[in-house]
Design a protein around this nucleic acid. Sequence first.
DNA 1: TAAATCGTTCATTTTTCCTTGAACATTTTG
DNA 2: CAAAATGTTCAAGGAAAAATGAACGATTTA
Lengths: 167, 167
Amino acid sequence: MSDSDVLPPRLSGFERECIDIFVHAAQVLGIPRSVGEIYGLLYASPEPLPMDEVVERLSMSKGSASQGLRWLREVGAVQSTYVTGDRRDHFMAETRLRKLAGGYLREQIEPHLHNAEGRLGRLEGEVAGLPEGGDRKFSSERLQKLRRWHRFARQILPLFLRVANKI
Amino acid sequence: MSDSDVLPPRLSGFERECIDIFVHAAQVLGIPRSVGEIYGLLYASPEPLPMDEVVERLSMSKGSASQGLRWLREVGAVQSTYVTGDRRDHFMAETRLRKLAGGYLREQIEPHLHNAEGRLGRLEGEVAGLPEGGDRKFSSERLQKLRRWHRFARQILPLFLRVANKI
DNA sequence: TAAATCGTTCATTTTTCCTTGAACATTTTG
DNA sequence: CAAAATGTTCAAGGAAAAATGAACGATTTA
């Protein structure tokens, strides 16, 4: 006799579909599947959940749940709350798009944009060291284009957040 | 005696820095490193390059170069051109941001948005099957929020392309 | 038409990333 | 204080993705 005959299903249909959606979203964003699962479960929950329940409902190791929840807290995608008479931390999904996107951009994208500045500086050094001639003009134009792209990214992301704020 | 004593360096400083930039950009976008390398090399090249040269300059296998170039062509990030007196295909980087971003969104993002519609439909089915009560209201609100996000994504991406067109 | 060139495909290897679970620290309960 | 509960860390294992290179087909050249 298998467990499914005696145990209640761990997840409701609604929960399963929410998890499915966020697992796929995580895939698009390059985030681990387990993180998508956790967020999906919390998104489907009217009440905040403690870590044990995440572990149990998702059949996930404590390690993954601990790390996943930490990551989600760091990017501001979940908040931990008190529940009276329970010393465990309880977690709930942050669902304001502005907060979600803002945390992701700050933690995941901003560092890359920052590093890109250093790389553009090095590229500029290379162009400066080039001998005069047709290739130098070409290289300089390519560098300028990269700089425009970088400036564009720096401007468009805050704009994106302002628009997201209205959703 | 090592090769570096007798062979010219395969890549110029300018090329190396361009490649570095696009390798990191690829990482952010979840694209294989080899694809970033190829695009970076082509971006740095005033002339279109045949596949052999990509293989040689990047010390990359023919397989990777072939597949990487195919992918780049599919998303519209490189174009192949004729070079008179040479039967090999020659590749050059597409550098219009609108084209680059458009191809990426069409090939990589759009399929996910399309699939999401199916998932939202299934989620709607789950909500419809829920008994009346507080949880049903909650679930319905969460579903609506997902639908708003989806609509938002569908609207913001074309807008993004219009703005990118001016860069 | 034989040899050389160009490019693709795909099974295999390599690498990278994710998950696991045991060990541990900390706090709480009996 | 001993046992239980809660949560973190990290080495090791496993899974998924990427790179390799040999085999192959197609085309061109001598």
